[in-house]
Design a protein around this nucleic acid. Sequence first.
DNA 1: CAATTCACTTGCAAAATGCAAGTTAAATCT
DNA 2: AGATTTAACTTGCATTTTGCAAGTGAATTG
Lengths: 148, 148
Amino acid sequence: MKNHNKTDWAGCPVRYAAGIFGDKWCFILLRDILLHGKRYYGEFLTSEEKISTNILANRLAHLEQTGMLTRHVDAQKKSKVFYLPTAKARALLPAFLNIMVWSTEHDAQTEAPDSFAKAMQQDPIKTVEYYQRQIDAADARCHSTSNS
Amino acid sequence: MKNHNKTDWAGCPVRYAAGIFGDKWCFILLRDILLHGKRYYGEFLTSEEKISTNILANRLAHLEQTGMLTRHVDAQKKSKVFYLPTAKARALLPAFLNIMVWSTEHDAQTEAPDSFAKAMQQDPIKTVEYYQRQIDAADARCHSTSNS
DNA sequence: CAATTCACTTGCAAAATGCAAGTTAAATCT
DNA sequence: AGATTTAACTTGCATTTTGCAAGTGAATTG
């Protein structure tokens, strides 16, 4: 999709979302961050889907530019870099969990347990809060000297 | 993203969803179908985002193959074709509305009224039902001789 | 029955992707 | 201290996808 700057893609809510994560790799990266606790560049590279390093760098920059992630240098080992989800990215969690409910109900090969969709149906607020705490826990494992 | 067939992208719920609508044009088409009442090939072509006809044909085929749409020939005018959302596509509505809530809250240029996010917060079930009836209404405007 | 509508298809240039091989800074090893 | 390794990118190039413009063919319309 050509010649669409950030402003072009603002306005319509669906188009705005598509401009930020309407791309398979951004979708996968947000999953890794919001649901798999990944934070480090090296961790994203090892995901099952085998993203290549130039594309990873490109998408991390995109997510940083759109206010979804912030980049940080590791305090213990300055050659390592991690990315933390912003409040904006964290706010996507409910939408993502709803997408996942849909997938578990329509993908015959789903790997998600029945308990997940059930939990979301019975008490969505509590379920969302559970996953939010997981995000906090993943963030807590990362320490930077100052911001970059 | 190369060499990923339908099976490769099954399993993980987020990856499954990305395989179906993790693409800006599919995202936009599903919006047009679920929220803008579009059904005819010609209607999709006229959307604000100006999809080109070869890409439109490609994405409609993709959505048909993944069980999101069914293709029909218009009963009144056999040169016209429309696409109806399946139950699977309709089941995406709650996730889409949640995405839209997120966008309205994070896009400074959002065109969505405050009332939308409020309605979703206060009574999500009723709000979803309202949009589901709109889908029914859009479907009702289409008539085919038999299926294609 | 000739012109037009409509849903695609085709051809080609431009852009994005994927893979492999750098590069650079920082940490570890000897 | 100097050499090796780790880690996060960057670069180059072949392949694939996209976008645009121009068909094509069946169905309608004039």
